[in-house]
Structures are given as structure tokens and as C-alpha cells.
Design a protein around this nucleic acid. Structure first.
Lengths: 151, 151
DNA sequence: GGTTATAATGAAAACGATTTTCACTTTCAA
DNA sequence: TTGAAAGTGAAAATCGTTTTCATTATAACC
């Protein structure tokens, strides 16, 4: 199994925005670069703070509006975590399962193909028509784990 | 695989509240009965509306406060869904995977033991120390599916 | 390059869900 | 029965997010 990192060149995102009729602005560029270049989940305020380093006049409203467009174009996924449903990550097409560090927010996607049999079985047993699923793992990334032998 | 329904006698919940030093009041009883007797996910307003049928003077604030206590005692789980992270269901100890109807909110728990191998593999590949996981299936329960042959 | 329609902007106001504050009421142990 | 403390509902405060609106910037067209 390979782990898939979420890095995507911001230029591709900007191009996709343009292709869909959206204009390229300084504010938008700043927001896109922050999210596209991050390997962590970020909420609106975090994006705002990071993006203002590139575009001081940026407003929080524009962060929300840009995130909404990026979600619409499937460039960004909204991430739900215990105690926080307001984070976003760069999406990776076709790999919908996330592994998230509960300390630093670092995120990695992985494939979960072995779920199919389980889902079929649950559908058969329950009578539900299963349309979608979420599998997410939470823990500590390598950098955030306490050194071995610590109390 | 067996499907586990979430029914729990409200009296057990009330007893557990009492054991933990919480007092039994009419408002609290009404909230507890609504959630304990529902097989669907409910948000605060839905609980409020249903519980007021038993306790007309009930305030929305008390709904929130009671839900918080029930979560703390692991009697209720907060449910995250695409587009709504503010629903609650009666918890079932030891079975943490949910199947939720996106039409009526009916919820069932199921076991997902086959996940263990997957989680171990992801942990080994990624270097993460995996502490928790969410597996949720979304779809339509038997009652909410359109009749076969419909367009 | 200049012009122009319109998309995008930020500030302020509005919004909805949740939490806090507070004066009053209820529970329950002594 | 009594009294300390927990619990209550209403109102106000708070938080994150969305809407409104007058202004600015973009990019297609000349």
C-alpha cells in the first residue's frame, strides 16, 4: 500500500479556477497557495493568517468564498474530526481515506480497497442501499510521537 | 455479521446520570427519553421539539446541557455527516461504526473487525501511531429506498 | 493600450447555532 | 423539613459563517 501525499502545484489549481470562469486575483492566489502547499488540515482562520503573509489586504470573507469554490472544483476536501468539523485539505482524486495527526494536523491519504467486501456485507445485512462511506484514521504522525521510553 | 440497534431503556440512562451525581429532573427525563427511544440521529432542535411534548416548559439550553452530559457518560455519540456535524444518537458500547440513512436519519451500528488488518498496514506504511478511527456508511435505509423499477 | 461589463473584494451587518450569565426553582441528603 | 447545591429558562453574549453593499480589479473586447 502506498501513502499518497496531498501536494498539488498551486498553478494547476489556479488554471482550473480560470477554466471554470473564475478570475485570478491576488487574494485568491494567496489562499490557493496556502492550501495547495500545505500537508496539514487547516481551518479558515489558519488559512487566513497564513495567506495574509502573501496578501496583507486579504479578508476572511474571501477565504471562505475561495474555499467554497475549491471544494466545488474538488480541489479541497472538508475534513471532519472529533471535536472539529471545520478543517480543509488539498484533495487527492480517487483516494478518499484520510490519516490525520491529532497533534499537528498532518494529513495523508491512503487506499482502502479492502472495504468493499465489508460494505457489501453490511448492505446485505441491513437492507440499506449504501451510497457513500467515510473511513478516517486519527493518531500521531512520526514527528509528533513521543520518543520511545518516555513516561 | 449482526446489525445492532441503538435502543436503550431510558431508565438505565437516568440511573447512570444519578450514579454520577446528576439530579433527575422533568426536563432531563424528557430529553433522555427522546434520545434513548429514537433509532435516528437527531439534532438539538429536533430533540427540543420532541421533548417538549413531554415537558412543555423545557428550554433549548437544557437540551444542550443534557446532551453534553450524555456524551460525557458515553450514552450518546455525536454523529458527523457530510453537511451536518450536529446530530446525536444513542451510543452502543463497543460498536463504533455507523450506517446512516441520508433521507430519514435512521441509524444502525455494525462491527467492522476486518478493519484491523487495514489499520495495521496503514500504520506501518505511514509511520503514524493510529489511535482512533471512524468508519461510517451513508445511504438509504430499506424504508427510504425508491420502489424497484422507478425512474 | 483603453474601455467596459461584471466578477471579486473587504467592511460591516446579519445570521444561526451554541454557550454563558443570572436570578429563580427544584432536587435530595441530612 | 430544611438548606446547600445543582438545575432551570430567558436573555444576552459569543463564535463561526454568510449576506449585503459600495468599491475595486479582472479580462474580454474594441
Amino acid at each position: 500500500m502506498e501513502m499518497i501525499s496531498a501536494f498539488k502545484p498551486a498553478s494547476q489549481w489556479l488554471e482550473k479556477l480560470q477554466v471554470h470562469g473564475y478570475r485570478l486575483t491576488e487574494s485568491r492566489r494567496a489562499v490557493v497557495e496556502v492550501i495547495a502547499n500545505s500537508d496539514r488540515v487547516l481551518n479558515a482562520i489558519e488559512v487566513f493568517d497564513l495567506a495574509r503573509e502573501r496578501c496583507a489586504s486579504l479578508g476572511l470573507v474571501t477565504v471562505y468564498r475561495t474555499i467554497a469554490k475549491l471544494e466545488e472544483l474538488a480541489l479541497v476536501d472538508r475534513v471532519h474530526q472529533p471535536g472539529d468539523c471545520h478543517a480543509y485539505v488539498a484533495a487527492v482524486p480517487g483516494h478518499q481515506h484520510l490519516l490525520i495527526c491529532q497533534n499537528c494536523g498532518r494529513a495523508a491519504y491512503f487506499e482502502g480497497d479492502s472495504l468493499e467486501a465489508l460494505i457489501l456485507r453490511v448492505a446485505a445485512d441491513s437492507g440499506y442501499h449504501v451510497q457513500d462511506h467515510w473511513l478516517q484514521l486519527f493518531g500521531l504522525c512520526a514527528a509528533c510521537q513521543p520518543p520511545a521510553g518516555d513516561p
